[in-house]
Amino acid sequence: MIEIKQLTKLYKTKHQQVQAVDDISLNINKGEIFGVVGYSGAGKSTFIRLINRLEEPTSGTIKINDKDITTMAQSKLRKERQKFGMIFQHFNLLWSRTIYDNIAFPLEIAGVPKNKRKEKVLELINLVGLSGREKAYPSQLSGGQKQRVGIARALANDPDVLLCDEATSALDPETTDDILDLLVSINKKLGLTIILITHEMHVIQKICHRVAVMEKGKVVETGNVLEVFVKPQSKTTKRFVQQLNPLEQQQEAIQSFINSRDDSEVIKLHFIGNSTRRALISEISKKYDVDINILQGSISPTQEGAYGTLFFEINGQKDVIHDAIKYIQASGVEVEVLKHVE
């Protein structure tokens, strides 16, 4: 649906030039929730504003449904922009207007008749869970309610794509989860493509199908969220994954729990999808003459399924331990041996 090729944005000042977006090429599928994550200054917000040409690219192409919007004349672009909804970190609501009037505003600009406008606004108010608050003003709302208004307003013109620029950064964790649940619900009900910019890996983990990791204007890694979480490749991605899975940071600390026996190995397992439900440790204990000491473990959900990490020590005869490891590997679980039998 969205095809981005060699997209670049260069800002020039009198004394220097800044490469905000550097040669990005991505494909984003229709109906998916695509996350872009990076630390401050990575170029995320510039990238998302290039997609609907709120920022003009220095070079590269952006095609939406095979239409090249980078070469589109302003008169045609104005109409094309109606296919994009956008929500912001700080809501950008009109403070002198009620909830109803905020949501109606883009419909007024589009020239939608008053009776159809009313029908659409009430439908959207119900969709985002604000029924009964139509006459309230933004100053009377919580942060989460303000963002719900922002989402409803962004959906007013029935866009094909919803762009979310740090949409949950100003919210507390519980409210963030509520808004993310709402976005998932909208994605499923409307078949809407969502592109979500964030610096919070929790957001990516909770709702995205695929993710691109940005650093210094470049995409350093991209892929299915589950794959990226289990096998991060770049240093930046590994840092983000460690935020959510402290076990990855504590691998060295685990060594202090390991006994000094020569007939033991320490194993790290990665469980993905249905394998997280399997009683694998119990199976090994029954099948092989070994003792197992579980050191640490965790399971985390994503839109594509759960993934888990487990550290354990296995004691026994060398050949029996190796047979047990082969059994684990044959089950489809990824195995990393941290301490070998001498």
Rank of each mutant, 00 (worst) to 15 (best):
A170S: 15
T46A: 10
F88R: 08
V219H: 12
L122W: 04
R117G: 07
F84A: 08
N245Q: 12
P106S: 11
G129N: 07
I325S: 02
S40W: 02
E56S: 13
V211W: 07
A110V: 13
D291G: 01
I272S: 14
Q74S: 13
G316Y: 00
L155E: 08
K114N: 11
H322M: 14
A212Q: 10
A20S: 06
P57I: 07
G305P: 03
Q205V: 01
E215N: 15
Q242E: 14
L295R: 13
K83C: 06
D68I: 02
R78M: 09
E55Y: 12
D177K: 15
E265C: 14
S169F: 01
G85V: 08
D181W: 01
G143N: 02
V213I: 15
F88N: 06
I109E: 06
Q89E: 14
S169N: 02
N245R: 03
E32M: 10
M214I: 06
T8H: 07
I109D: 08
I33D: 00
Q16G: 00
N224W: 08
Q17C: 05
I99G: 05
A110K: 12
S75V: 09
H322A: 12
P57R: 06
G132Y: 04
G143I: 01
D68T: 03
C164W: 09
L141K: 11
A324E: 00
I33Q: 01
E166F: 02
H202E: 15
R278V: 13
T176N: 03
S264D: 04
R277F: 13
T98G: 10
A253P: 00
I204R: 06
N115I: 11
L94K: 01
V320I: 15
K238Y: 07
T71G: 13
R153L: 08
Q89H: 10
L183N: 03
K231N: 15
H322C: 04
L226T: 05
D289W: 00
A110N: 10
R117H: 04
A20I: 03
A110Y: 11
D101Y: 07
K286P: 00
S331H: 11
E119A: 14
Q82R: 15
V220A: 12
D263F: 09
N259D: 15
I4P: 05
D158K: 15
T236N: 02
C208H: 01
C208G: 04
G35W: 07
T61M: 04
K44S: 10
E248W: 05
F229S: 04
D23V: 11
